[in-house]
Design a protein around this nucleic acid. Structure first.
Length: 216
DNA sequence: ACATTAAGTGATT
DNA sequence: AATCACTTAATGT
């Protein structure tokens, strides 16, 4: 079966080095593949999750969203990583507090939440992986808080652009100013002006729907 | 040619 | 740094 072979390869390459054979075998049996397109929302605020995702290809951004639909980007998840928050959400069947959006065409492995308690009990490597994930997310969250609290918006914008370039693997970003403003929880006008400044400093080139980061 | 959407700008708070 | 009100530019039909 073609899909089974693909799945095996994907599991091997993305998390093969993390887990023991027995767990990898079970993962192969249980995994469902999910492919996403750019800007597809994977998890909405308020969703209850039944599967826990591991990102194998591409990149996902995780944001906070208030009832008015205003957003703030919290952190990114890329290859081999999971969002530990989704685990708690799965097990306790509580609504998600975050929104997850794929930033590029991505591939996720989805595991039924029925396995979670069992895996936690039987596989030390799985426990370690989940704890590690919590820790990493916590550090990233602190970094984001620092940025919001201590950096000026123009510095934040520049860091955002650099992060996006690194994550997407291209210095050409196909974002509108409005999208950037949403991620940083600012306004389109302000982002346009700051981008213009960066352009004058020779750091970026601005085109419609396209920003080239030259100097990073 | 017209409508729609993205981006630029001056003034005000 | 945000918001308003408006203009200009790019793109789709």
């Amino acid at each position: 079966m073609q899909s089974l072979i693909d799945k095996k390869a994907l599991i091997e390459q993305s998390v093969g080095y993390l887990f023991e054979e027995a767990l990898l075998d079970e993962m192969l049996q249980q995994a469902r593949l999910r492919e996403t397109v750019t800007d597809e929302t994977i998890i909405h605020v308020g969703d209850t999750l039944h599967m826990i995702p591991i990102v194998v290809q591409g990149s996902i951004k995780v944001s906070r969203e208030n009832p008015d639909g205003e957003e703030l980007l919290l952190y990114y998840i890329e290859g081999g990583d999971t969002c530990a928050m989704s685990l708690q959400c799965c097990i306790r069947k509580t609504a998600s507090h975050i929104k997850a959006t794929s930033m590029e065409p991505s591939v996720l492995l989805m595991f039924p939440m029925e396995n979670m308690q069992d895996w936690m009990d039987r596989f030390p490597s799985w426990r370690a992986y989940i704890l590690q994930s919590y820790h990493t997310r916590m550090l990233e969250l602190m970094e984001t808080i620092d940025e919001i609290a201590f950096m000026r918006l123009d510095e934040r914008l520049l860091k955002y652009l650099k992060d996006q370039v690194k994550l997407l693997g291209s210095e050409e970003l196909h974002h509108t100013h409005q999208q950037i403003a949403d991620d940083l929880h600012s306004s389109r006008v302000v982002i346009s002006r700051l981008l213009k400044q960066l352009e004058h400093r020779g750091i970026v080139e601005i085109h419609r729907n396209r920003i080239k980061v030259k100097d990073y």
